[in-house]
């Protein structure tokens, strides 16, 4: 990811052009350099919007979160330490804004189930739920996305952080303020729950097609 510190690249005239790190861009932003901030926004806007969209599960809320995140980033640019990239910091701002947005809506709570129950719901022992069915679903996208919207907020959040934004377990645990063990368990349960919703959606589609 380009967010990880400065990288040297060759320019057309053969001289090295250095891609500034997040920390460098934020330092220039803090001094009022709008073009540095523009480059910073360009680098992270896709990830912030994706995260906001799936955390809020609402397009208008997602846009509010996107705007609030970068306005906060502009204001706090001088106070942040981003030696390892600013992405986790931005996502934690977005996460707080998304939590506020969600308070306005009815929120689904995650239910407690055993791993065995989750596994059966996710298709353990079901011979009709196959990688080929999933490949078809990937082309259509509908069930993949619909299944995510049926999860509780904390489940959607961890799936996006780990599986979409690619944060590692330690960074995710820190961002969520939970232990590494709790993070592992939440991720696994969220994946199983999502797979169960995917399976339900695909079954319903198959019934309509008949």
């Amino acid at each position: 990811m380009s967010a990880e510190g400065a990288r040297a690249e060759l320019r057309s005239d053969g001289l090295p052009a250095v891609t500034p790190s997040d920390a460098q861009l934020l330092e220039r932003t803090a001094r009022g350099d709008k073009s540095a901030f523009g480059e910073f926004v360009e680098r992270h806007r896709g990830a912030v919007f994706r995260f906001a969209r799936w955390c809020t599960a609402d397009a208008a809320d997602a846009e509010d979160v996107l705007q609030q995140t970068f306005v906060s980033a502009w204001r706090a640019a001088g106070d942040v330490r981003a030696e390892h990239g600013a992405r986790p910091w931005l996502l934690s701002i977005a996460r707080r804004a998304a939590a506020k947005a969600r308070q306005r809506h009815d929120e689904r709570r995650s239910r407690e189930s055993s791993i065995e129950e989750l596994g059966e719901a996710a298709g353990f022992g079901d011979e009709r739920f196959t990688p080929e069915r999933i490949a078809q679903a990937t082309e259509q996208r509908t069930c993949i996305e619909a299944a995510l919207t049926r999860l509780a907020a904390d489940e959607r959040e961890i799936l996006v952080l780990r599986d979409v934004e690619g944060l590692d377990g330690a960074a995710t645990a820190e961002l969520l303020g939970i232990s590494l063990a709790a993070q592992k368990s939440r991720l696994h349960r969220a994946r199983l729950r999502w797979a169960a919703e995917l399976r339900t959606c695909l079954d319903q589609e198959a019934q309509h097609a008949r």
Binding site: A62, Q67, F70, G123, I134, A135, E145, V164
Partner: peptide, 29 residues
């Protein structure tokens, strides 16, 4: 089930990584 689960996680990654684009939201930003 291992094959299905790993395919499902892969599908989630592929589909959602393409979901950060929404031109009007970015223009308003």
């Amino acid at each position: 089930f291992g094959g299905v689960f790993s395919a499902a996680v892969g599908a989630l990654r592929v589909v959602l990584r393409g979901s950060g684009e929404q031109a009007d939201a970015h223009a308003r930003l």
